[in-house]
Amino acid sequence: MIDRHPWLDALAHAVLIAGILIVAFPVYVAVIASTHGPNDFMSGLVPLLPGSDAIANYSSMLTDGLSSSGAPPLGGMLWNSLVMALSIAFGKIAISILSAYAIVYFRFPFRAVAFWMIFVTLMLPVEVRIVPTFKVVADLGLLDSYAGLTIPLIASATATFLFRQFFLTVPEELMEAARIDGAGPLKFFRDILLPLSRTNIAALFVILFIYGWNQYLWPMMITTTSSHYTIVMGIKRMSDVADALPQWNVVMTTVVLAMLPPVIVVVGMQRLFVKGLIETEK
């Protein structure tokens, strides 16, 4: 705002605070719920003050799991989610940065066609192609494996497109200077382009890690043994019990634990993330 009025400032703050409350309140409820015993939810009222069972809830979920809903201990599921999210994030970044490099810096026949074909796959997210993809993964014998969990989700048109846009802003003279300095295509990529893309890679990593972590439909399709369950699936299984009341205290414990890794990633990479989205190092 160019004009600064006290009441405009107040309005801006009011809107921001309202937004934060809307986002933060459910998180608060989840954290509070995870500190109560199983019987505190019978009344139908959600408690808003901390209870006394936090340690019991967390330790039991991390060690034993919840046998009544067939959920294994959380440690294994958290690990599966971590492996899946990291593989998807690194895989997507590796594949898309290489395809963007090929599309921007090399002249080859049907280059534009290749680009548009990648671009068109934006219209085909996992949910749309889930049945044929499942068939392919099943035929390849990849059910119940980390490869099956991650590989079908790795190709990324969005990331390719973002890297392409970034590469197009890198001055052509840099590539020419590198050519004269005796750097071949791979050397130029490794020594110049990759370091320049650092902040973009970090920003994408944050987004893609959360994308991978939050995957729900696909892991549910292709995992049948509890050793490959991911945490997001686990939450759903626990809250979806038959012939009993869901144990909301432990469900919320799981929710809080499931939220932590993405929070750690976002907080830890916040500065690079913001930098990667707003500026380029040129």
Binding site: P171, E173, L174, E176, A177, A178, R179, I180, D181, G182, A183, D191, I192, P195, L196, R198, E281, K282
Partner: peptide
């Protein structure tokens, strides 16, 4: 002959220094 093998050096208008 490839630019690198011509043993020439070039100075560009926008300097083209490696920013990192």
């Amino acid at each position: 002959v490839d630019p690198a093998a011509r043993n020439i050096a070039m100075v560009f208008q926008n300097y083209a220094l490696y920013p990192h």
